[in-house]
Design a protein around this nucleic acid. Structure first.
Length: 868
RNA sequence: GCCCGGGUGGCGGAAUUGGUAGACGCAGCGGAUUUAAAAUCCGCCGGCCUAACGGCCGUGCCGGUUCAAGUCCGGCCCUGGGCACCA
């Protein structure tokens, strides 16, 4: 057998073996326990990045592990092929988004194959294929019939120069990325799906979703944001007509402290007041500048202006001035709020800024209220009681809310209401590269959904982009002019396309029956679903995962599937990060250098002393560790790594360096270390092979092991036990370290028959433990060393409990919680005898001194703590 | 601004979930092999004090609970992710 480890050769061999034997083709088999393992599919951006490699390695490790546990595993792969970057590339490269996308897919598919991922490629799909998006178009029309879809006005970022809608990502510091013009908020009609109808189920179901990380569940709960409050009205008169200003509050107990109301710039009341108030009109215009992203809105300086209109407090009858505030969001609730500056931090600062009255209506015993500065306790609803509130004085939060709500209800000016922060899902995009929304606007019949037999509405792929970035189909009458399915008259198609989350919300289900041509899903979906294990980036914790859960319930309610949730278990992987290096130019701009072009030197303690650019030998600045990105030029190309070290090393490194849910710091030296381990294992195997010894089975020699051989075997089985446990909890870094420990132990064995038998046992264990992680090398060695034909079909190793037993046990002896001695006692020693032995130790006695012994704690097989 | 994470040696991380802090690896140092280098193998490797035995300190900071805290509780600091049109 070859002495040197040659990954390129054995990896190609293993891959063609899997291909020939169709090792990963999954077939429905009700006799076997199924396991559906899914990694989030990639956007075909051009080539794989390390984040993909990490994600897909985790998924492949889980798939192969489950398969070796005997499960019927499905692991598919596909392409999230619609999206904004393809349009940018189209303008830049003067090629249609479709051809750019398809060529990226082809290249990236080759990369995935080189990495040895065990996918069932027969189920591959790309979301830009009409056979795929046809079904979500159909579902949308179905939802329209079920009254789960509606159209309403909604805000977008408008670039006044390019005359186009911008994504939040395309708004940089309030300006359009291409034109540099100040962005405006503009309302346009858009399609929505009623996810809020499912808010309660989406929320309550999460209580049972034990397979999801608690942090993701918490994030989703907060996103849905269920709150109990009171919706009520301030009556007022406008032009002699009785009107009502409606607001929602979770703090009805503070209603007696309202000193003003604030409405959003878009609110009808504000619009009305601005008619003969140029200052207000100017302010409203100002409010409409800037993007729609919530982070921008929430960090803006809080500004306002009075409308000159007053409303009547529904309980006190007082006149309350109404302001327009830039911090009040139109589209949340009623776009208006009651302001209680004494007990709401935002209102407090606003009132201080504009010299509005602040009236304390909540008090906590022992605290002193003052209007000088905001104090956290002002908002404490748990401990506070009402003051300055007439008949409500002395009531606690709950009693006050109940009393106030029923008083408002009696006046027919309000009632208790449950509200959600969650908003309906806006699915319209004014872009080209997406699935057309299957709706037709007929001047006679209004909105008419495209009938099933006319689906799909195919997006034309051969198009040209102009520099403004506007959608080509909006300028293609030959495409959008059509006839009305109902009256047959002239009509126009909807030219907006779907949000790409529409495609990524159901692909997991389509994989189960990717070739179904008569329906969206067929019975196979009920065999494979739910996905047993879903793996993807933490950045998808809310939006994608919530939309997919919602979609799943829609699919269930139209009768296509019969389970409630799509993803049984979820693993959110951390980011891949790397060092950054830069030089500052005279203008103060940073120029970033790729880590592979920089040499780093260390002092004798191993600390970094300097970094120099290889090309000129001059120093560069060290910029810290950041997420791999183009802008910081700190990306490492997986392709290059696979060529240099082989896929197994790259996979091993990514699994070993961090636990899957934490960020992974790239280090070239660390990759060397992973490579070194595989070479070390290879060398050991080559020696075993060439020695040609056929040792006796371990069972025959286990009774004749020497003490040191017993120690070696215990180390091997302890590591095996730990690794099996770590597989079950998906901590793969310690699985790898267990393999390293075993190999280190095996290196210390000699040439005797018994040592060789141990070696054979240990190598067999290591190969199977490492099999899911570095599949090519282990596939080769398993066969070459004669363990079997196909490691994927082998039996998972079990730790031998008898090997773990020890004759003597080490106890740590503490005096007052500090370690003072270590004693060795026979395994069957009684508690009393252990205590005696601990007290007999000289150093222990020294620290007890003359103090009386108050207490002795003995933790079996661990420690003795003497309290003196 | 709001929501959710994370801070352990020079570095990545481990500590079987309250019981010996630093497994495994990287970097570094020393040795073997070599004419030499690479590769490989072996050893050392938190800080301070000590000739040694050993001692003191140490898991972002301050405080608490406990026989015992990296782990639990309260407060603070730093740092990463998400915020609905990036995917």
């Amino acid at each position: 057998m070859q002495k040197s480890f040659n990954p390129a050769e054995i990896e190609a061999d293993a891959q063609s073996y899997w291909e020939q034997h169709q090792s990963f083709k999954a077939t429905e088999d009700t006799e076997r326990e199924k396991f559906y393992c899914l990694s989030m599919f990639p956007y075909p951006s051009g080539k794989l990045h390390m984040g993909h490699v990490r994600n897909y390695t985790i998924g492949d490790v889980i798939s192969r592990y489950q398969r070796m546990q005997g499960k019927n595993v499905l692991q598919p792969m596909g392409w999230d092929a619609f999206g904004l970057p393809a349009e940018g590339a189209a303008i830049k490269n003067k090629m249609p988004p479709a051809s750019w996308t398809y060529s990226n897919i082809e290249y990236m598919k080759g990369q995935l194959k080189q990495l040895g991922f065990g996918y069932d490629w027969s189920r591959e799909l790309a979301t830009c294929q009409p056979e795929y998006y046809k079904w979500e178009q159909w579902l949308f029309t179905e939802l329209y019939r079920r009254d789960l879809v509606y159209k309403k006005n909604s805000m977008v970022n408008w670039d006044p120069v390019d005359q186009t809608v911008l994504a939040n990502e395309q708004v940089i510091d309030g300006r359009g990325w291409r034109s540099g013009a100040l962005v405006e908020r503009r309302e346009i009609p858009q399609w929505f799906i009623k996810i809020t109808d499912y808010a309660e189920e989406l929320l309550s179901e999460m209580d049972h979703m034990d397979g999801w990380p608690e942090k993701v569940r918490t994030m989703q709960r907060n996103w849905i944001g269920k709150s109990h409050g009171v919706r009520f009205a301030f009556p007022y008169e406008l032009d002699g007509k009785a009107e009502q200003l409606w607001v929602y509050t979770t703090r009805a107990d503070t209603i007696m402290g309202v000193t003003f109301c604030a409405v959003a710039a878009e609110h009808p009341l504000a619009q009305h007041a601005a008619k003969d108030n140029p200052e207000l009109a100017a302010f409203i215009d100002e409010c409409l500048q800037g993007g729609v992203a919530e982070a921008d809105l929430a960090t803006m300086e809080k500004k306002g202006i009075p409308t000159g209109i007053s409303v009547t407090h529904p309980l006190t009858g007082e006149q309350i001035p109404v302001w327009v505030g830039n911090y009040v969001l139109w589209g949340y609730g009623d776009g208006a709020v009651m302001a209680v500056p004494a007990h709401d931090e935002r209102d407090f600062h606003f009132a201080k800024g504009y010299d509005l009255p602040i009236i304390q209506v909540i008090d906590i015993e022992g605290e002193t209220f003052s209007t000088d500065a905001w104090q956290e306790w002002y908002a404490d609803k748990e401990r506070g009681v009402c003051v300055n509130s007439d008949k409500y004085d002395g009531l606690n939060y709950l009693d006050a809310v109940n009393a106030i709500a029923s008083d408002l209800e009696a006046k027919e000016l309000g009632e208790k209401q449950v509200q959600y922060r969650l908003r309906d899902w806006g699915v319209s995009r004014q872009r080209y590269w997406g699935a057309p929304i299957p709706m037709i606007n007929c001047p006679k019949c209004g909105t008419v959904p495209v009938p099933k037999e006319d689906l799909p509405v195919v997006l034309p792929e051969d198009v040209e982009f102009d520099a403004s970035g506007g959608s080509p189909i909006k300028k293609m009458p030959e495409w959008f002019q059509t006839t009305c399915p109902e009256c047959g008259g002239d009509a126009e198609r909807e030219t907006d396309t779907f949000d790409t989350f529409m495609e990524s919300s159901w692909y997991y289900a389509r994989y189960t029956c990717a070739d179904a041509s008569d329906s969206m899903l067929d019975q196979r979906a009920n065999y494979w679903l739910p996905v047993d294990h879903y793996i993807g980036g933490i950045e998808h914790a809310i939006l994608h995962l919530l939309y997919a859960r919602f979609y799943h319930k829609l699919l269930r309610d139209v009768g296509l599937i019969n389970c409630n949730e799509p993803f049984q278990r979820l693993l959110t992987q951390g980011m891949v990060i790397a060092d950054t290096y830069y030089r500052m130019d005279d203008a103060g701009h940073r120029h970033w250098f790729n880590p592979s072009d920089v040499d780093v030197t260390y002092d004798e303690k191993g600390r970094v002393t300097a970094a120099k650019l290889q090309s000129d030998g001059e120093a560069v600045e060290i910029g810290g560790v950041e997420k791999m990105s183009k802008s910081k030029n700190n990306g490492v190309d997986p392709q290059e790594m696979v060529q240099r070290y082989g896929a197994d090393t790259v996979r091993l490194y990514t699994m070993f360096t961090s636990p899957p849910d934490q960020s992974l710091e790239w280090s070239d030296e660390g990759v060397d270390g992973a490579y070194r381990f595989l070479k070390r294992m290879w060398a050991l195997a080559a020696n075993m092979h060439d020695a040609g010894i056929e040792p006796k089975p371990i069972a025959e020699i286990v009774s004749s092991l020497t003490a040191s051989q017993q120690d070696a075997r215990r180390e091997i089985h302890t590591a095996l036990k730990q690794a099996s446990f770590d597989y079950s909890r998906q901590q793969f870094n310690t699985v790898v370290s267990a393999c390293m420990k075993i190999v280190n132990t095996l290196y210390k064995l000699g040439a005797s028959d018994t040592d060789q038998a141990l070696l054979r046992e240990g190598m067999g264990i290591t190969l199977r433990l490492l099999g899911p992680i570095s599949p090519h090398t282990t596939h080769y060695l398993w066969k070459k060393l004669g363990y079997g034909d196909n490691i994927l079909e082998s039996e998972w190793p079990q730790a031998d409990e008898s090997a773990l037993k020890q004759d003597t046990v080490q106890y740590v002896v503490q005096v007052n919680g500090k370690v003072r001695a270590k004693i060795q006692v026979a395994a069957d020693t009684t508690k009393d005898a252990i205590q005696q032995a601990a007290l007999a130790d000289n150093n222990v006695q020294k620290f007890i001194g003359d103090n009386p012994i108050k207490k002795v704690i003995v933790v079996p097989n661990k420690l003795v703590n003497i309290v003196a």
